[in-house]
Design a binder for these strands. Structure first.
Lengths: 237, 237
DNA sequence: GAGTGGTCTAGACCACTCG
DNA sequence: GAGTGGTCTAGACCACTCA
């Protein structure tokens, strides 16, 4: 009858919203739904798989498809390099390197990067500006064991984030977001009073099981906002 | 030869990492890859579809599969109700309603909710506590046009977020994150000095095209952190 | 052991977009 | 018009988990 897994997904969603299958209950099995909608089982399967990906139902072999109650939202967040964020807003991007040197891993850096204390790292500090305004102050540590080329590269020519994307593409990452008061160092670079609220994003990346880099990205509090939606948002195609 | 779309996805990822198909280039077509790996086209299709979902490649009919260069990360963020966050940490949850009343939409609320200024809303303020410590201060507006039952409900018995999940399940949502300084009101409830950094999350939700609610959730700065990873993270099963 | 979802296959048609 | 990805179908086997 109705064609398309997308339509079937919407129909199922409507029935879920209506309360036909309350939280905690088990939905009809795929074969049954396929008969009902007059389509192949794979089509129903794909529709329900996406519902499961979104955290709306949980599937288990033999048990069936359970409707979840305490739904935690699964939202998708797109994270861009500072340059892309700024240029997407139609502003002029500018980068200034504030220092770079090779160091031995402190305890905190060692923990984040999963290396031994004292392991060789490269440290870079830099400022990303939008229309000559401080947008993001970056502190970055690169694991020289996994990226030895970073020891000799001059990061005043290119922000380390962009360079790493070329050298070690397709890393995995872990992010932490929080709000904090600006330290003296951060305050100076962001042109904020000390203690002013700043939005901090920490990012650890890995490449085939080895840690690559750890970055702390500071944004002036009220001037920065991270926006995202939940649900479908599949790339066009 | 090699079975499974997961394995094929990993093989493709490895070849992408190796630089065999640099950013901006077009990958071989599905049929060709399917022959190479000795599997059906659909299997390759599914592997590449997931790469596209993760923002690693872009697919277009007739054009082919393009390897993306300026990869913006697509990370997945799981957002839970305060109760769930707190109990997941093994702490005791407690909710205190600080006030509720029906009001007319201010200009800001009207904008967020997509209603006319003056439209009927219900406003609720409340505090979520973890082990008797302030965890989250919540300000919430509910659109009475789409949820008239909220006019009579007593939100001292149950946090509005949990109530709404039962009444209007499966909403869509939009989130905004930022850091700001605590206003006098927020500071008092979070037991922070005025101006102290707080982490703010705003959430707007919609149900079948109609706005449902707008919430502002304040967390004490350094005591709160949002953690997430990117990449695969498919639910088990 | 039996029933459910997870996945693969081969073949087919459609939709979009390029030349 | 032609080539690519997007999707559907029917049938099959496997893997997990429950009774």
């Amino acid at each position: 009858m109705s064609t398309g897994y997308r339509e079937i997904k919407q129909l199922l969603l409507a029935r879920l919203r209506s309360g036909e299958w309350p939280a905690g209950s088990i939905m009809p099995r795929e074969v049954q739904l396929a008969e009902e909608y007059g389509c192949a089982r794979v089509t129903v399967n794909r529709a329900i798989r996406e519902l499961a990906d979104e955290g709306i139902v949980r599937r288990q072999r033999r048990r069936g498809t359970e409707v979840l109650g305490d739904r935690s939202r699964r939202a998708r967040l797109t994270i861009r390099q500072a340059r892309q964020q700024i240029e997407a807003q139609g502003q002029t991007y500018d980068y200034r390197c504030l220092g770079q040197r090779s160091i031995a891993a402190t305890r905190q850096a060692a923990t984040r990067l999963g290396v031994a204390v004292g392991a060789p790292l490269r440290f870079i500090a830099g400022l990303h500006q939008a229309d000559s305004q401080a947008f993001q102050y970056e502190q970055r540590w690169i694991n020289l064991r996994s990226v030895p080329e970073a020891a000799d590269f001059d990061f005043s020519a290119m922000p380390p984030g962009e360079w790493l994307m070329q050298v070690k593409p397709l890393t995995e990452a872990e992010h932490r977001l929080r709000a904090t008061g600006a330290s003296a160092d951060v305050a100076r670079h962001l042109h904020q009073p000390p203690g002013a609220p700043v939005f901090v994003m920490e990012r650890c990346t890995w490449w085939q099981g080895q840690s690559v880099t750890w970055a702390r990205l500071y944004h002036p509090g009220d001037a920065f906002e991270l926006l995202f939606r939940d649900g479908e948002e599949r790339p066009s195609g």
